[in-house]
């Protein structure tokens, strides 16, 4: 792998190569270049994941013609696909080296921080949502219990914007969550659940399920499950598979023929209040 990267840099196939290098025992993202080609010997595949593609978009914003090589796991590849769809990067300017990802019978060894989830306490399991549950289990809570559990999770929010900042597919210059009229600055508990749902809605057809937001959340809100839900809806309603599809998400296409019909007003079922 290192020889391949070296030859890419030497031959000018790529201007920079994004990988990881250990600095004071911390694996951190490192930008390898032709000028310091000997550094490639120190390249590591770190278990700690950073959003390399986000750094790549920042570089491409500075120099649109730059050619970037990248160490990519499955989640990085999905993010790259989404960034191509949204014209943040061009497929012809990015070359990837595949890195080992989630474990499977075919791949025993995996290099990914998400594989060692933190422990979930008894209280969170009882009143909140266990971050390691499957989406089906969360949906099975039903409307009232589900609402209580989600609201318990949301009311912990300290509005750090970490979920948005770390997100590899969040690139908008103007963000609804920064808009003074939509989300005021100041009061600590943001408008729940609107704050989280606004972000969730924007993640439909965009979230690549990398789990970095949940990793970065200081309050351990099960954001990954929330965004899995919006992607599930996008898949069920519009048959759109985020990260693998080369088309624009269903919400950004005007004039597309749809077979959906407005739902009739259902009589109140009684149990729901």
């Amino acid at each position: 792998m290192k020889e391949q990267i070296k030859s890419w840099l030497e031959q000018g196939t790529v201007d920079v190569f994004l990988g990881y290098r250990e600095v004071d025992h911390h694996p951190i993202p490192w930008c390898f270049t032709q000028e310091a080609i000997e550094e490639v010997d120190d390249l590591v595949v770190s278990p700690a994941r950073y959003s390399l593609e986000k750094i790549a978009t920042h570089m491409a914003a500075e120099d649109p013609d730059i050619r970037i090589g990248m160490l990519a796991r499955d989640c990085n590849n999905r993010a790259l696909n989404v960034l191509y769809v949204w014209n943040q990067l061009r497929p012809e300017q990015v070359v990837t080296v595949e890195a080992n990802c989630c474990p499977s019978p075919l791949k025993e060894h995996a290099d990914c921080s998400y594989l060692e989830p933190g422990t979930v306490g008894a209280y969170k399991k009882a009143v909140g949502i266990d971050n390691h549950l499957r989406l089906e289990a969360v949906e099975a809570y039903g409307p009232e219990e589900g609402r209580n559990r989600w609201m318990y999770e949301f009311q912990k929010c300290i509005k750090c914007y970490g979920c948005r900042n770390i997100c590899p597919v969040c690139f908008c210059r103007e963000c609804s969550l920064d808009h003074d009229d939509l989300v005021g600055t100041g009061p600590l508990l943001p408008d729940i659940p609107i704050f989280h749902l606004v972000r969730a809605v924007h993640m439909a057809g965009r979230c690549i399920d990398c789990g970095l937001c949940e990793d970065a959340c200081p309050m351990d809100i099960p954001l990954r499950l929330l965004y899995q839900k919006v992607n599930r809806i996008a898949m069920d309603l519009f048959d759109y598979r985020t990260g693998t599809s080369g088309d624009q998400p269903p919400f950004s296409i005007l004039g597309d023929r749809v077979t959906l019909e407005p739902k009739p007003i259902q009589p109140v079922t009684g149990a729901e209040a």
Partner: peptide, 8 residues
């Protein structure tokens, strides 16, 4: 193009 991630 110079890009670095600096620990601090």
């Amino acid at each position: 193009m110079e890009c670095k991630l600096v620990p601090s």
